[in-house]
């Protein structure tokens, strides 16, 4: 019953290696809805929690293509259709002259997609999160290494999960209120 008011269990680990090790064991135990938190990126941690693929490169590629096509079409439309200037009979679609601006719009839109895509996929901005209610979690941006198993996980079972976390190397386990 107590589980209904819980968001999950938050376990603290001593150092990055312990966290990676713990995350691997939690995953091997069959849990899927859990996440690790650290003050800096840790090599191998994303793999340990089973998150191996990110769509970031695809998002940036799409942005770059949109920027390139839109940038060139804008110049083509302006110079050939909307405001044609005949300078000594030179071609209106003078493509070599359109490359610098096309390049800039490519980079601009790709970067926009990169930043906004990263934030959107991460679900940010999100000013509040249940984890922030745990006082100790403030260390996650300083020197704390955490792992949180959500109650929403199919295998979540109060004390058993708590025991697993301690066995996986947690120094302390906190309740996260929903």
């Amino acid at each position: 019953m107590a589980d209904a008011q819980l968001y999950g269990l938050l376990a603290e680990f001593r150092d990055p290696e312990a966290l990676v090790d713990g995350a691997r064991r939690v995953r091997e135990a069959g849990y899927r809805r859990f996440d690790a938190f650290s003050p800096m990126p840790i090599e191998g941690l994303a793999e340990a929690i089973g998150f191996t693929r990110t769509r970031m490169p695809l998002v940036v590629l799409i942005g770059g293509l949109i920027g390139a096509v839109a940038g060139y079409l804008l110049q083509y439309w302006v110079s050939v259709i909307a405001y044609p200037l005949n300078v000594g009979g030179r071609p209106l679609n003078s493509w070599p002259y359109f490359i610098p601006v096309t390049f800039e719009t490519t980079v601009l839109v790709a970067a926009l997609f990169g930043v906004l895509g990263m934030l959107a996929l991460n679900g940010l901005p999100r000013p509040h999160h249940p984890l922030f209610a745990v006082e100790q979690f403030a260390h996650a941006t300083r020197d704390g290494f955490f792992l949180c198993i959500e109650t929403a996980d199919a295998r979540f079972a109060g004390d058993e999960t708590r025991r697993l976390l301690v066995e996986a190397g947690a120094t302390e386990v906190f309740d996260v209120p929903a």
Binding site: P41, I42, A46, T54, G114, G117, H129, A140
Partner: peptide, 27 residues
Amino acid sequence: MGWRGSARHWQRYQRAYLLLAGLATPL
């Protein structure tokens, strides 16, 4: 913006940062 250091976030973050660096270099 509610950054909490999630491993999934870091993964996307690092990838996005690297891609931005790759874009900024020719820029």
